[in-house]
């Protein structure tokens, strides 16, 4: 198992290099550069030159890229071009835990809601229960995240005042768990709904297929109650394809995080990313892109390992 994990990590390296080159290239192709945005328009050309020289903006692109990668490997993502004197790595270590926390909670929410509903649907296919679950999933699938988030803020936060409109905690107050949870509920819910619909559908399809299998009939012939048949003999088989899908959904999950953090003003790397993108803060954009890529690769690695744990037929 260990050698399998190591092999998978090594296989991920070229992927990461590719992603870093690509993101570096795309950002540099985009029109506009940070100097145009941040500088006093009346700055003297010499000062502008000095500034460009200082941050390496005059180097040819491949040198810029190599410098950046070299530093990054040492944990140095450079300094923000906009917030002068701030290390990118500082910005990220400050924000990343908030994002990971939001993602973990909403992943957990998505799984504990969608899997049971998927199973419920599969156990009673083509009944009112199934149709209701299906209808709700499609509704969820068709609803844009940002819109759903805004609607919730408008009704539950602004009009009813049940929830805060954004942020991670009430400002200037001592830490309280309830306050944190209170702030977390809406963003986690909105982020979870994006993948909940898809996960419910996949669980349903997968379980429907599993419940038709011969070994399920064998389990019934052993005299087990339906609950044991479904959960002991069906579920583990039914979740195998769902794990794969979950790995594939991770990138869209990141995209969702960016939007949700913006809407709820959640101080994570998604929010940092949007601000950086508008200001062409290259070092920040690229650091976050690389981190998102690494997290996706790690997520897929975890999915692969879970897959091997769940399915004894996989040789590794």
């Amino acid at each position: 198992m260990l050698s399998y994990i190591i092999r998978r990590i090594i296989m991920a390296i070229p992927l990461l290099i590719g992603i870093s080159i690509l993101s570096f290239g795309i950002i540099h192709l985009a029109p506009g550069d940070p100097t145009a945005l941040m500088m006093d328009p009346n700055i003297k050309p010499e000062d502008m030159e000095a500034y460009k020289e200082k941050y390496g903006l005059n180097d040819p692109p491949h040198i810029q890229y190599l410098k950046w990668v070299g530093n990054m490997i040492q944990g140095d993502f450079g300094q923000s071009l906009i917030r002068q004197g701030t290390d990118v790595s500082f910005l990220i270590t400050e924000r990343l835990p908030n994002t990971l926390f939001l993602m973990l909670v909403s992943t957990f929410l998505a799984l504990i809601i969608s899997i049971p509903f998927g199973i419920l649907s599969a156990r009673k296919p083509y009944t009112l229960t199934d149709y209701s679950v299906t209808f709700t999933s499609f509704l969820g699938l068709a609803t844009p995240n940002f819109w759903f988030g805004l609607v919730l803020i408008m009704f539950l936060s602004v009009q009813l005042g049940w929830f805060p409109t954004g942020g991670i905690a009430t400002l200037n107050e001592p830490f309280s768990l309830w306050d944190r949870i209170h702030h977390l509920i809406l963003p986690a819910l909105v982020l979870a709904t994006a993948d909940m619909a898809a996960l419910t559908r996949y669980t349903r399809t997968s379980m429907l297929e599993v419940l038709k299998q011969d070994y399920i009939r064998t389990a019934r012939a052993k005299g087990f109650k339906e609950r044991k048949v479904v959960y002991k003999h069906g579920l583990r088989n039914g979740l195998i394809p769902v794990i794969t899908i979950f790995g594939l959904l991770l990138p869209s999950f990141f995209a969702g995080t960016v939007i949700v953090e913006k809407i709820f003003n959640w101080p994570g790397i998604g929010l940092l990313f949007i601000d950086a993108a508008f200001q062409r803060d290259y070092p920040v954009i690229m650091a976050i892109t690389v981190i998102a890529a690494v997290l996706t690769v790690i997520g897929n690695l975890i999915a692969d390992i879970l897959y091997a744990v769940f399915d004894p037929r996989i040789e590794y």
């Binding site: 299998q213 011969d214 070994y215 064998t218 012939a221 052993k222 003999h233 583990r236 769940f310 004894p312």
Partner: peptide, 20 residues
Amino acid sequence: RGNDISMIFQEPMTSLNPVL
């Protein structure tokens, strides 16, 4: 079932649960 009356099936390849 499985106690007083038990049953075996035609398809031994698929009648056992692959993950147990």
